[in-house]
Design a protein around this nucleic acid. Structure first.
Length: 277
DNA sequence: GCCCAGGGATGCG
DNA sequence: CGCATCCATGGG
């Protein structure tokens, strides 16, 4: 991959390790719009305008450095993919999702987003997040920012229900009221086990959601979020009927170790897209 | 009407 | 611990 960064844009060529549609559609981010060969991508109060074709990707933003880091452009994915292709379960999944990159998103935004995600579908998750942005986030002119913690503290349980959170409204209210900016800052500097423990102490956050927050918001790669799809994939690949997700999580994290987070994304994208066939 | 979605909280043994 | 049950909501 050839990357040229300037003040107002990033231009990328030789796209063996970056496909915009795959990276956006693999379930790690909920605030984006794809329109032909152009995508709008949002994080906190920032926006990137991404133009792409099969030969070149151009990322424009008022904060180029933020999105350089956001798209993880310093990481060599060819090494990761070569390692994972050695695994018989993963080879076709890696080839299918060759251009996936794991986003480095904001922890707080991931926390709120993945509380909404539990036992929910991606379409509804997106709508709920959009509602929170347009009702509680700052008006940026052409879009709404993700609401800050202080802004979200003004939302009532009824507001969260209006956002379509259903029974998660009370959990969200409890967590938002309890959480502080200092909690978020401390979280970034904790070790992995402390991060996991703290996240589990928040309402609406169980093991799977905590693992997603760590993977997409804290850059922790040796976690393997297990949701309904991964559960189905696991049973298909191992020809078993296991429903205990703790067991599945332990076995898969043990199998893929430091590359667990990457492996999980290739699995998720491949099997969800192919409807397990 | 039933089933499912990037699951978690609670209670009970 | 493990396990069962309940939980809003919209789309297929």
């Amino acid at each position: 991959m050839k990357i040229v960064k300037s003040k107002d844009k990033i231009v990328i060529n030789e796209l063996d390790d970056f496909n915009v549609i795959q990276t956006l559609n693999c379930g790690q981010i909920f605030r984006y719009v794809i329109d032909g060969e152009r995508a709008l991508v949002y994080s906190l109060d920032k926006r990137a305008i991404v133009n792409f074709n099969e030969n070149e990707i151009t990322i424009k933003s008022d904060d180029v450095d933020y999105f350089y880091n956001f798209f993880d452009l310093d990481t060599d994915y060819s090494y990761i993919k070569n390692e994972l292709r050695k695994d018989e379960f993963l080879k076709s999944a890696v080839d299918f999702g060759y251009g996936i990159r794991i986003i480095k998103n904001d922890v707080y935004e991931m926390l709120i987003s993945f509380i909404i995600s539990s036992n929910n579908n991606i379409g509804r998750i997106k709508k709920s997040i959009e509602y929170l942005c347009s009702h509680f986030g700052k008006n940026m002119g052409e879009y709404f920012a993700f609401p800050t913690l202080q802004e979200l503290k003004r939302a009532s349980i009824a507001d969260f229900r209006s956002a379509g959170l259903g029974y998660r409204a009370e959990q969200m209210y409890d967590t938002v009221q309890k959480l502080t900016d200092e909690d978020i800052n401390k979280l970034k500097h904790m070790d992995k086990n402390s991060q996991f423990k703290f996240l589990l102490s928040l309402k609406g956050v169980g093991e799977k959601v905590a693992h997603c927050i760590m993977l997409f918001g804290l850059g922790v790669k040796d976690v393997f979020p297990v949701d309904t799809w991964i559960n189905k994939v696991y049973n298909k690949l191992t020809n078993t009927v296991v429903s205990d997700r703790k067991t599945i999580t332990r076995e898969l994290t043990d199998r893929y170790k430091d590359l667990s987070g990457y492996a999980q994304q290739y699995f998720f994208y491949y099997f969800r897209d192919n409807k397990l066939k």
